[in-house]
Design a protein around this nucleic acid. Structure first.
Lengths: 331, 331
DNA sequence: TTGTATGCGTTATCAA
DNA sequence: TTGATAACGCATACAA
């Protein structure tokens, strides 16, 4: 059994309520008593019992994160950031990888102060089925949720990239990414491209809208090899993900194409890249740190009882590195 | 505020202790009262308060999982399996992505019944620094832990593969994988290869021990392209991971090499493959389901107070699919 | 400045 | 078969 404040009280020769106050750094306890108590607590390896504390405080200083699709990388980095921030504010985050409904039920029983739900791309979170007194924040596609939501404008991101490339003179701009309907997030990016190009669908733009079979490095590599061989006058490529971009760079390299002299590249990306790719990437997207910041602030705000008015859709930003240059710059 | 048993009691016109019994399906409550109470509880959306319950029971039916490196895929699948099993046994799993020490402290305060630590490959978990009354189980490299540990024998796995290939007549067997010292888990596989080949290090076997820059598909693809071009009499390849294998298969395909006619492949793997690769893969490793089973049983066992005697190192198994055939089989 | 008493929601023991 | 009550560990209003 763990050490309780009563054990500490006995050792210190004071009442346990004094110990309680001392440990919470209350001004109602004299300095010397306080330091003595804290010292004893440390010696005994005291750890406050969350169950008891949250029972009386009706607050657990804990945030539950529902994360049904553990396998995905991008959310992992976001969660890590959120966790770090929350830790600073002395909140603990606990994750559940159960199905949304059951995870929420669990967190509800645990009396967490707020629940953050990471949306699965294909499922909808509606409040009709869910019994909870704990405030919920949803991160994912706005249209999939009837809760306060934080979303990222992927469509606008790709448009931004297209517009920028056009501004600096590029005429043939290709998009390499997932063009299927399987993943709504990826689809948003494709739609962004179509809208920027004033077409409706991929088949309206067969030589510029390049589908991949996945989002891995090799998929980008393969797509780029094909498109760059068949369509020599393409001068700029926008990719749907960082990994695809890495593949495109390898393909360009093998084809002796210089980036950005022969080919400009803008990559969709949320995540700060650590890898050295020979060029510094130009990216569009909402940086994870900004997403994390918004999520955290919203979380703390709803915990304090503020009713979140509306959902937030974060605007992407464009960061131009050396992978991208005006058309004809080197001629 | 949530619904409590007292609310239910008031609605049902009984005492709250009767409600408590009824909800726990105690035989000490008459059928009709019981059903009535349960019905009201559902109507009110009652959810038992974990804090209060674990306060009195000194048991939370919760298992804490320490998972500092969220980004990795293989552990994700394992965790999912463990979670499913534990759910069946009516345990809840909670994950923490904090640093090991602080995650353990958190779980300790939450009075979880056991803690499962997923080892980070480069850090050591020793019991000297850790204050806890909760039993801990470690999953990772045995040598990194002074706690009861479950580990997988990667070295033996690769040896098994080599020996099998030799048995069926292969003379030139290459290993494609991470040969650096960066990741101890990968290093184990390399050592397994060296031991099976009776050499000490990679440079003793330059044409057969093929290093990659990573564990992605493209790394396997690239390595295989190089090695298969330079060394035509290699008839069998062992790879360090599933993704590498996918790359090798693509390379073989591009080089018009038939698998298994021209090239036999055995892949290190823990994870059941869903993808159709044209062949059914031959694999060595410990299937996640088996790992999960062992972890779960050990977890439940230590919760029941059994002192786990010793650490467990799981033996790999060899599964031969159509990607692997005896040397000369088709001649 | 310190100590005493009460209650948080639940389970468990005992009395009715 | 049901109800009253103590206890779990802690925070806090109030008494000393």
């Amino acid at each position: 059994m763990g050490v309780t404040i009563k054990d500490i009280a006995r050792h210190a020769g004071v009442s346990y309520s004094t110990v309680s106050k001392a440990l919470r750094d209350s001004p109602l306890v004299k300095k010397p008593t306080k330091t003595k108590i804290i010292k004893i607590a440390e010696e005994l390896g005291y750890q406050p019992n969350v169950a008891a504390r949250s029972l009386v405080q009706k607050k657990s200083f804990t945030i539950g994160v529902v994360w049904p699709s553990v396998e995905r990388v991008a959310p992992s980095i976001l969660i890590t950031k959120i966790n770090d921030f929350l830790e600073e504010k002395s909140y603990t985050t606990l994750l559940s990888i159960n199905k949304v409904e059951s995870a929420i039920a669990t967190f509800n029983r645990f009396q967490v102060d707020a629940i953050l739900v990471f949306g699965e791309n294909n499922s909808v979170l509606s409040d009709t089925s869910i019994h909870t007194t704990v405030p919920i924040l949803y991160y994912g596609l706005k249209e999939n949720s009837t809760y306060p939501t934080i979303d990222v404008n992927r469509r606008k991101a790709i448009k931004l990239a297209v517009n920028y490339l056009e501004e600096i003179g590029h005429k043939k701009i290709a998009f390499i990414g997932d063009l299927t309907d399987k993943d709504p997030l990826q689809k948003e990016k494709a739609i962004g491209f179509f809208e920027a190009m004033n077409v409706k669908k991929a088949s309206d733009l067969p030589e510029l809208a390049i589908p991949t079979n996945g989002l891995e490095v090799h998929d980008g590599y393969h797509a780029a090899k094909v498109v760059l061989a068949n369509n020599k006058d393409i001068t700029a490529i926008i990719t749907g993900s960082y990994d695809l971009t890495r593949g495109v760079l390898r393909a360009a390299n093998e084809l002796s194409l210089d980036v950005p002299k022969d080919l400009s590249i803008i990559s969709y990306d949320n995540i700060p890249q650590s890898e050295n790719l020979g060029v510094t990437l130009s990216t569009v997207g909402v940086p994870v740190t900004r997403i994390a910041k918004h999520i955290n602030e919203t979380l703390l705000s709803i915990i304090e009882g503020h009713n979140i008015q509306d959902s937030i859709i974060l605007d992407p930003e464009l960061n131009i590195g050396t992978s991208c240059a005006p058309f004809g710059w080197y001629d």
